[in-house]
């Protein structure tokens, strides 16, 4: 076989259905063993785009990335939050051991600026992780971002709505996130390089609010006033 084909096979860029192959893509462990196992033992791909698809914030989506944030920020890599929907709360990040000196929040106004900023962040060697909330993105733009991500070697996670799960996307890793009944985070792998998608797992996320998970009182009781405003 030609050398070019060999490289393609080894990098698992050409997906072979009959073979389950370990990829040699550079990656960052997610910090969750269960998820790492599902992702072929590697984790977040570096130099490629990842997507997290979720409906509403507050289901543990940031905690999914927290081990990575902690590690990168202490290795002196910068973490960019691009157009986050809410304010990343500094005291909570500090409590979780994220080095806030390495956290930079960027707000862009125009769509052109967003892509430009993301590209620049991705190409820089100082960047460790870019988390971006793009809103609406054309497929062409994602392709452009994927190319920019390949130029650097950092993790880029796009947070998008779950309805995009049906659309195809050039991202290397796509995770669908759903809340579980007991405050765990259910992850459905929509796409990944080098293997079949469709694995599911659930990560316990109760610790994010110090809920030593007891059987929570299901019934609405306690301080709920008679009149709901």
């Amino acid at each position: 076989m030609s050398e070019l084909l060999n490289t393609l096979m080894q990098d698992a860029r050409v997906w072979q259905g009959h073979k389950h192959q370990q990829t040699t893509q550079p990656a960052e462990p997610t910090g969750y063993q269960v998820l790492d196992n599902q992702l072929g033992g590697i984790g977040w791909p570096r130099g490629a785009l990842s997507e997290c698809l979720l409906d509403a914030p507050g289901i543990g989506e940031l905690h999914l990335l927290l081990p990575l944030m902690q590690r990168l920020s202490h290795n002196g890599k910068t973490i960019f939050w691009l157009n986050p929907p809410h304010t990343p709360y500094a005291p909570a990040l500090a409590r979780e051991g994220v080095n806030l000196d390495q956290v930079v929040m960027i707000h862009t106004e125009e769509a052109g600026d967003f892509l430009w900023t993301l590209e620049n962040c991705l190409r820089s060697p100082v960047t460790g992780l870019v988390m971006a909330w793009p809103g609406k993105l054309a497929s062409r733009d994602i392709r452009r971002l994927q190319l920019a991500a390949e130029a650097g070697s950092n993790v880029c996670v796009l947070f998008r709505e779950r309805r995009y799960a049906e659309q195809n996307s050039p991202a290397a890793l796509r995770l669908e996130l759903e809340p579980g009944d007991n405050q765990e985070l259910k992850i459905n792998i929509v796409k990944r390089r080098g293997s079949w998608p469709g694995q599911r797992c659930a990560l316990a996320m109760a610790h994010r609010a110090d809920l030593a998970f007891r059987e929570a009182p299901r019934v609405v009781q306690g301080p709920w006033p008679t009149s709901t405003r």
């Binding site: 914030p57 940031l62 994010r208």
Partner: peptide, 16 residues
């Protein structure tokens, strides 16, 4: 980074 962060109270990561 400052390391004495355990004394901070539990807070959410998103603030509206």
């Amino acid at each position: 980074a400052a390391t004495m962060n355990d004394q901070l109270p539990r807070r959410p990561l998103w603030l509206l």
